[in-house]
């Protein structure tokens, strides 16, 4: 689905490279979480995936389409949808259903098909009952699900989310995360989830760790969170559950090491004598 080859990118007027020769391949249907400290290039990477930013050097391919060729951009935007951090600033229209319709309207679809797609998408993310509401009356979690509905109505096969939960309360986080998980399972969508939260990263199939515009670690959550000391050097922590398990393991309960989920840890705890 995505292929990046030695991508370099530098923001105007800044000395260092935001992306420093980054290479990465993401196969179709995979759920990838991207973690890293502030300024590691995560958001820049995300914006390379739908051609919002173009590489200064190197190449980015989306479904075999080169993002540097301007003619490919409309098609790429149909394949890849983007959900941003601030839920307010990505809502265009003054009612929920009009906003969901914005993408399909840009595709030039007939009105009946747009309405059908909009209704389906809103019901799927669970805000069908709010379709005539004004977006500023929605909760943070509902606003982000509205953004996801906008992507669904486009019939995209990939969703790039740039810290979608960092401005939400715990309830909103849970809503958004479970929607992401459903997108992956039910719609077989490609997910690229940029996040600060290790708990959220642990839900993915694969974790990519970025630092100074490069990929420093790449593997399954088990592999990544098994290397506590390397992560600590990069300024990253383990998920709280894993940390707790590992501390107990250090005190002699070896079976509790590297647990990523609360349920898993509880199960192992119950097996202890």
């Amino acid at each position: 689905m995505f292929k990046l080859e030695k991508v370099y990118y530098k923001y105007h007027g800044e000395a260092g490279f935001a992306l420093n020769g980054m290479s990465l391949t993401i196969p179709k249907g995979q759920w990838v979480a991207v973690i890293g400290t502030n300024g590691s290039g995560k958001s820049t990477f995300a914006r390379q995936l739908n051609g919002l930013l173009l590489p200064l050097q190197g190449k980015v391919w989306v479904s075999g389409l080169d993002t540097a060729q301007e003619g490919n951009i409309p098609l790429i935007r149909r394949y890849v949808a983007f959900v941003m951090q601030n839920p307010d600033n990505q809502i265009v229209a003054s009612t929920v259903e009009e906003d969901t319709a914005f993408g399909p309207e840009n595709l030039g679809l007939p009105p009946e098909e747009i309405r059908e797609r909009v209704n389906e998408a809103l019901v799927w993310v669970g805000i069908g009952h709010l379709k005539n509401k004004s977006p500023h009356l929605l909760s943070g979690g509902q606003k982000q699900r509205l953004a996801i509905a906008g992507a669904l109505a486009m019939h995209t096969n990939c969703l790039v989310l740039d810290e979608p939960t960092s401005m939400l309360d715990p309830q909103g986080r849970r809503e958004v995360l479970s929607t992401i998980a459903r997108l992956h399972q039910e719609k077989k969508m490609n997910i690229v989830h940029i996040t600060h939260s290790m708990e959220e990263a642990a839900c993915a199939e694969r974790i990519v760790v970025m630092s100074e515009g490069q990929i420093v670690m790449d593997g399954t959550p088990e592999e990544i969170f098994g290397q506590e000391s390397t992560l600590a050097e990069l300024g990253l922590e383990l998920p709280a559950v894993t940390m707790l398990g590992n501390r107990l393991a250090a005190d002699g309960w070896e079976t509790l090491r590297n647990q990523l989920e609360t349920d898993g840890l509880v199960e192992k705890l119950c097996l202890l004598k």
Partner: peptide, 17 residues
């Protein structure tokens, strides 16, 4: 950025729901 990501390219070829 959001509008661009959602395929907005001005009024030509755009339909309305």
């Amino acid at each position: 950025e959001a509008m661009e990501s959602r395929g907005y390219h001005g009024g030509s070829g755009r339909t309305r729901m």
